[in-house]
Nucleic acid binder design. Sequence first.
DNA 1: ACGAATGTGTACTAACTAGTACGTTCGAAC
DNA 2: GTTCGAACGTACTAGTTAGTACACATTCGT
Lengths: 220, 220
Amino acid sequence: MTDRLSDVHESGMTERAVRTQGDILEVATAEFAANGYAGARVDEIAARTRTTKRMIYYYFGSKEGLYLAVLERVYAQIRSVERGIRIDELSPDEALRTLAEATYDHHTTHEAFIQLVSIENIHRAEHLRQSETILRENVTAITLLEEVIARGVAERIFRDDVDAVDVHMIISAYACFHVANRHTFSAIFDRDMLDPALQDRHRRLIGDMVIATMTDRRVR
Amino acid sequence: MTDRLSDVHESGMTERAVRTQGDILEVATAEFAANGYAGARVDEIAARTRTTKRMIYYYFGSKEGLYLAVLERVYAQIRSVERGIRIDELSPDEALRTLAEATYDHHTTHEAFIQLVSIENIHRAEHLRQSETILRENVTAITLLEEVIARGVAERIFRDDVDAVDVHMIISAYACFHVANRHTFSAIFDRDMLDPALQDRHRRLIGDMVIATMTDRRVR
DNA sequence: ACGAATGTGTACTAACTAGTACGTTCGAAC
DNA sequence: GTTCGAACGTACTAGTTAGTACACATTCGT
């Protein structure tokens, strides 16, 4: 149901049509991320595009259809980043740090993704749940983590009562927060979250945190 | 500027007026948290109140004024929770765990607060920045943390290159994520974030995490 | 008791916004 | 070069929504 419209157009689409759709998606991503679902204006998206509002409805059917397409696109992007991570030859703790830092890097460089996830959560993931693609494919990160944790536990350097989803949550929480709550955090604690030196320190800190947690002697 | 309207009414307000305003704020909190700023409907808030839309504008001036009042109220609530935490007699690591768990408990039981913070961040904290009260008073958590960290560092059990704001970020990130990203996380990883057993485990995990990070031998 | 301020309800409006009716152009196949 | 469908543009509408004009009630100090 989700992809019906775009599927129809995927075959027999001219070069120009592909560009137009991409153009719309690009602008729509920024608009939805910046203003929320209800706050986003279809007219505003159309105005910032080479094309017109008519085309948005032609290709995406409705505001909701457009939003869904935007959501699927940003999730597809993070998926492709995750697939590119190679950790086979690293020790469990180095692998953990690599995964944590990769997530941190992705999130800090893809603010729109984080904002869209926030927005989606405000709406109780009702749109995301409609997308079989996202639900089916977005567990890559977990597969990688499971393998690393299994190795770490086998080598008796990791605790065994924290699973892959927990670790993913720890990493995601930290990386998401840094971007998602940037503005309130900056305002209240008067700390520039975009300062490169600070970001560097926080990048190291997320690795420290995950490794320290998983290798903690106290809890075993 | 922010508080002008409510200040005017604070003196010489009837009992009934106080109740009406409280009623409006209660309903508005839920409506804004559930639908975002743009998605929230003033008519809907009015309908769910004992009173009418007229009164919302009478007391709060505008939709934005109402939203701001809502924001200040939820921030005042967390502030009062923070003021109630007693950690003077605890060891630094126990104190850290207590603070982390208190934050976790507050956030899991105040979903509206977390949602409003998310919403505020979508709008780049432009409303929050207008509220001197929030900016002035909401650093209580940091004061507590600073004291604990200073003690831990002095006792040579904590690392000294992570400051109070960093630790607050780690704790907040974890506690926020658990609530804020509950829906997308549940949907994708098919894990019920409201399961009491899981919440219990996660409550212990946040303490483990903070203590492990701060007492990590590797980094010193 | 009375006037003045505060508190309340109803009915309205002006502006906005998602979505559409209808017509046109472009490009490829025959 | 004609036909057919995909791609596109303009001008519009129906419904919604923040905000208000106006009338009325309640309370309280004097």
